[in-house]
Design a protein around this nucleic acid. Structure first.
Lengths: 187, 187
DNA sequence: CAAGCCGGAGAACGGCCGTTCTCCGTTGCC
DNA sequence: GGCAACGGAGAACGGCCGTTCTCCGGCTTG
């Protein structure tokens, strides 16, 4: 098996297992077995579990932000509609069967303090998401795009937490309604 | 040593260690040693680590909500000022040296899926916090206190996440500004 | 005083898991 | 055809940790 294929299979298996069961609860050997890759290969590609977890988070970051952006792009050109589309996508995500909260918030709670690599991957993701929302806010006609972006970001992050922990199935809708108020006030 | 004193000392030690280092990273023996309690007593009071963790979370819930309520009460009678005081308190909390994010969000990420007791304690806390904000919102002169409460809750939860993971030292101030917009629009 | 229960200290046990090592079959090369 | 490098499979190692057990000193009680 080639390195590239082994790496792909490991990351696919890692994402499925780590996201659904948690990082600490999944052993290296579980990922290895699910991917059908030998120990030797695994340690050749990722010299420790920490590296594998960081790679899983980076891969998930790319996929996750890609899905958000695709949904936003499908909403058209209007800057307000594009900002609100983010919350529509969150609603779809929260309703998925295998939704278990934000993988990055979970990873932070699990090993954020103990692993510089994982912490950096989590912060990278959150920074990129915030930057994306900031770009969307800057396309909106307002005098204070930064304030708007900050409010939108907080609503989105709050919705992820509430949807993950609480039992409120409408977290995304509530966040969208509040975002609508912020947009109206900013215009 | 009496049972009540041993329990107190265990919970004090557990809160300090679990919150600062994470639950999985702290062994039963670490808590036991810090509390100066024998193994026998510990397992007599809490028959497993899961029980001890749930008790730690319950104790922290009471203290944490007490601190919030005290700060809100100090803000006076005006319903708007009381709602905004929540974010002032969050700002003070985020600035504390030992701030490491919301203990309940962290606990959820760490073992939320694996421990019914811990999951229940986390949900209990978030429900109670949400109910508290809902009460504050119902004292505010508006036609839609529920929407207001939902928005405030999301901003507060989002601020905790951003303050914990990100490097933005002004998360609470941004959340307060957005909350102000929601209040103005609701009035 | 004697005897028995209580509880403290800490060793022991069992299991899990990240990491490394060993064995062996295969493959490519001269 | 022989030989060496590679890599797959999985056992072995080391350490950690939750939980239980053993030993023993001291306090209580009749």
């Amino acid at each position: 098996m080639e390195l590239a294929e082994a790496s792909d299979r490991l990351l696919v298996a890692a994402e499925r297992l780590y996201y659904s069961r948690g990082i600490a609860a999944v052993g290296i050997d579980d990922v290895r077995a699910a991917a059908g890759v030998s120990m030797r290969r695994l340690y050749q590609l990722y010299p420790s579990k920490e590296h594998l977890v960081a790679a899983y988070l980076d891969a998930r970051d790319v996929r996750w932000r890609g899905r958000v952006a695709a949904h936003v792009d499908a909403a058209g050109e209007d800057p307000g509609a594009r900002l609100l589309a983010v919350f529509d996508w969150l609603g779809l995500w929260f309703a998925e069967d295998d939704f278990r909260g934000c993988a990055f918030i979970n990873a932070f709670g699990e090993i954020g303090g103990d692993s510089p690599l994982v912490l950096a991957a989590v912060q990278r993701h959150k920074d990129l998401f915030r930057d994306y929302l900031r770009d969307l806010a800057h396309a909106f006609p307002t005098d204070s795009p930064e304030s708007l972006a900050a409010g939108i970001t907080l609503l989105a992050e709050g919705a992820m937490t509430v949807a993950a922990i609480g039992t409120d199935p409408d977290a995304a809708a509530h966040a969208k309604a509040a975002a609508h108020v912020l947009l109206d006030a900013a215009r």
